[in-house]
Nucleic acid binder design. Structure first.
Lengths: 345, 345
DNA sequence: CCTCCTCGTGGAATCGATTACACGACTGCG
DNA sequence: CGCAGTCGTGTAATCGATTCCACGAGGAGG
């Protein structure tokens, strides 16, 4: 592959001049500029990004470590992050932690070794020493969706509490009193926050949330299935199951089906994180939707602010409830014919 | 950040010795080795991958350019590729082309600029000059899922023809005669191959495939919706719609719903590419499943063979039909000797 | 005792870029 | 005509690693 020296030779100038042309430095004569441009074209020369990064100490690359690529929420997040970064001239390298702390650390380490300019993380656990150390060492970093408390790193996330209150109002309005929740790992902020918000909202309606109705999941489909089976085995099973992410909702649906039960007649179901497929499940699933695209854009903005020396800021955006049919019909149906997607705010 | 020089100073040896310790070179005394190890630990030193890559001319990184990350099929492919690559000591950088040739070229270019060791591509179009050029220039490359004809690059893919014949048999056995297909872009091999296989299989049953029943899609949900609406507007709409990817099937389902029609009573639906959500749609959707994980692993194996100087080989794996309820029930009750695999929901 | 190996080590070149500095040519002004 | 400034360009240092080569010490063998 042609190097800058080959271009210099071909154009009859020094490498310094070639470099200046490449970087649009003003003090280059028109003559030299055109000769260099021609040489670049005939040789099909492309600057070696590795060499350039070594010299300039910047890679124009962002690392994104997410908890689980197979979760459509994170896929969409990754997509919007890449899009926003590309618009600002940055590339993104994605690391998939698969909800496994050691895999998360592996990716953080290799990203750091590659000297990425900044790191976007949705932590799988409560705080790996590696990440803490990186943050302390001054690696530009922003948490997205989940975060680690007590670390001085901006956080970009959605606040689901209002939407969870709306959901509880919806459920109670439907007459449900025995409601259960499939929690995410307590080590994740989203895991504990959603349970707490749910409990508080229920309390406002005088509805208890007994321990037996709190199942411990891990944000993966299989755990949703397992926890739901536990609920169904209870002497008095819940009337509603609220899965705190979409994958666990899928598992819950599996478990309900496997027993030959129907949603919502036999048991109601709601989920955190809305995805396109929820419109088409049987029945369409009531879910809490995050402004995923906005989240990704805001996270990139914050990180690049931090990288380029501007003060970054944390961002919290509201989530919203999207009512469908998986929790039962309203006793007074406003529009009995409309099949899907009503949203409340 | 500490460099190799700092480690050398701390350990009281030369950078050459540090490098030898880092790379497990045999001729280093035990004494020096332990001193270097200690220095590495106290400084928290990590080798700079950028500098190393510049010197060794290898990045131990693979590029993967896929057509659309939001398509669960490709998400899964990406995941299995990353997993297989990691097991062999390589990282993966994913580029999402979003079915747009210019975006595909953008990613190929930045990947090449970063001097990745090899490129895995699922081409969005019939052959960008950039990719052809890269292949000719000797960049290790492997096509996965889709490919560009006439280029000497190994291909790892699933052959859907047998499964499509099974699907046609299933449809004809159900008594359907007016069958339509939503095709992918003709420029992609999968786009044209699936239509052709479908047409040939239908011919064996004496069923025609009129032009009016061939809709042109682009592998995105919106096109599935648009094409399906066109079918429904026909004076004699089809009895079955076969979407050649899962996203277009989703769009088709949308369009059918929007008309207040039901699957499969009013119109049957089948899709290429099976995904977990198809079990839970209303009704569960009959689909052709690819061995996605195997495909990803085989592609990585082929590419790394090529990179490390072993002869790479093309791989073709069979896809298989998964019958669910979206094409209607068999007229004759549960028939266990069906040649195709039934899924238990 | 001298020679020849082997072994561990360090010096220095190298990868492909960027950029500080020096230098020569030219311009303009006094 | 001479001096100062501007402009375009080239030389060389540099980034952080790897690796070839040379060198000195020590052991084995003649």
């Amino acid at each position: 592959m042609a190097s800058i020296k080959d271009v210099a030779a071909e154009a009859g100038v020094s490498v310094a001049t070639v470099s200046r042309v490449l970087n649009d430095h003003p003090s280059v004569s028109d003559d030299a500029r055109t000769r260099v441009r021609a040489a670049v074209a005939t040789l099909g020369y492309r600057p070696n990004a590795v060499a350039r990064s070594l010299r300039t100490d910047q890679t124009r690359t962002l690392g994104l470590v997410i908890s689980d690529v197979m979760n459509p929420y994170f896929t969409e997040l990754a997509r919007s992050v890449e899009e926003a970064a590309r618009a600002l001239g940055y590339s993104v390298i994605i690391g998939n932690a698969d909800e496994r702390p050691e895999l998360q650390d592996h990716h953080v380490r290799t990203l750091l070794d590659r000297r990425i300019d900044g790191l976007l993380v949705s932590p799988t656990d409560g705080g790996s020493p590696l990440m803490l150390e990186a943050a302390r060492a001054g690696t530009p970093m922003v948490f997205v969706d989940r975060w680690i408390p007590g670390v001085d790193v901006p956080v970009v996330r959605a606040d689901g509490r209002a939407a969870i209150r709306d959901l509880v109002a919806h459920l109670c309005g439907l007459g449900h009193r025995r409601v259960a929740i499939i929690a995410g790992p307590a080590a994740t902020t989203t895991g504990s926050e959603r349970v707490q918000a749910f409990r508080e909202a229920l309390a406002e309606y005088g509805v208890p949330l007994p321990d037996a109705y709190i199942g411990q999941g891990d944000f993966q489909a299989e755990s949703g299935r397992r926890v739901t089976e536990g609920f169904l085995d209870l002497p008095e099973p819940p009337e509603v199951v609220f899965a705190t992410d979409n994958l666990m909702a899928l598992g819950a649906l599996d478990a309900v089906r496997a027993r030959g039960l129907r949603v919502p007649c036999d048991i109601a179901l709601a989920a955190f994180d809305d995805i396109p497929w929820f419109v088409h499940t049987d029945p369409p699933i009531t879910a809490i939707a995050q402004p995923t695209g906005e989240l990704g854009r805001a996270a990139v903005r914050a990180l690049i602010d931090r990288i380029e020396g501007r003060p970054p800021q944390s961002v919290t955006l509201p989530a919203r409830l999207v009512v469908r049919r998986s929790c039962g019909e309203h006793p007074d149906p406003p529009h009995p014919l409309s099949p899907v997607q009503r949203s409340t705010s």
